[in-house]
Structures are given as structure tokens and as C-alpha cells.
């Protein structure tokens, strides 16, 4: 396996943290068993109006990043990948 194809360990952990939160806290209570990392979570109903703020609360309290009001929208928080990108950008 080529080294360049590997996802850095820290990013992999971060994505898993995000995925686990969304899976356990937001998707499963709605009876949604699975979703992909690119899936639009608002369009598929995984994240609703309250879920957005639960997610933001998770990002702020657990992942220690500040999310501005302008960033709380359907694009920035669209998918697991988009959320991961946001957190990485914020932590730089």
C-alpha cells in the first residue's frame, strides 16, 4: 500500500468521532441505520433544525472548535466529509 493513499491517523480519528456522534445521537433515534460520508445529512433528514445545534454543541464542546453563525448552514454542515473539513480548517 502506498503511503500517499493512507489517510492520516488524526484525520481518520476525527472523521470517526464525527461519524459516531451523528450515527448514535442523530441518525439512530430517527431510525436511520446508515449514511455515507458524502450524503447530504439535512436532505435525508439525519440532521434537523435541532440536530444542527446538537452537532454544533458537539463540535464546540468535544472537538473544541468555535462555529460561527454564518457557518451554520446546509453547505458547511452538509455531510460528514464537509464537517470534517470544517473542523480541520478551524484547527489549523
Amino acid at each position: 500500500m502506498s503511503v500517499t493513499n493512507q489517510t492520516p491517523a488524526t484525520q481518520s480519528t476525527l472523521k470517526e468521532q464525527i461519524r459516531e456522534f451523528i450515527q448514535v445521537q442523530l441518525a439512530e433515534p430517527k431510525g436511520i441505520a446508515s449514511f455515507t460520508d458524502d450524503e447530504s445529512l439535512m436532505e435525508t433528514g439525519v440532521i434537523d433544525s435541532l440536530g444542527i445545534f446538537r452537532l454544533v454543541s458537539f463540535l464546540e464542546e468535544d472537538l473544541k472548535v468555535r462555529v460561527s453563525d454564518e457557518e451554520i448552514n446546509a453547505e458547511t454542515l452538509k455531510s460528514v466529509n464537509a464537517i470534517e473539513e470544517l473542523v480541520i480548517r478551524k484547527k489549523k
Binding site: S49, I52, F53, D69, E70, I72, N73, A74
Partner: peptide
């Protein structure tokens, strides 16, 4: 922006 009403209202 278009579609940001939810964020504005919640804010």
C-alpha cells in the same frame, strides 16, 4: 444567503 433563514431565525 438564500436558504440561511433557518440559521438566522435560530440565531
Amino acid at each position: 444567503k438564500e436558504g440561511s433563514g433557518q440559521a438566522i431565525f435560530t440565531h
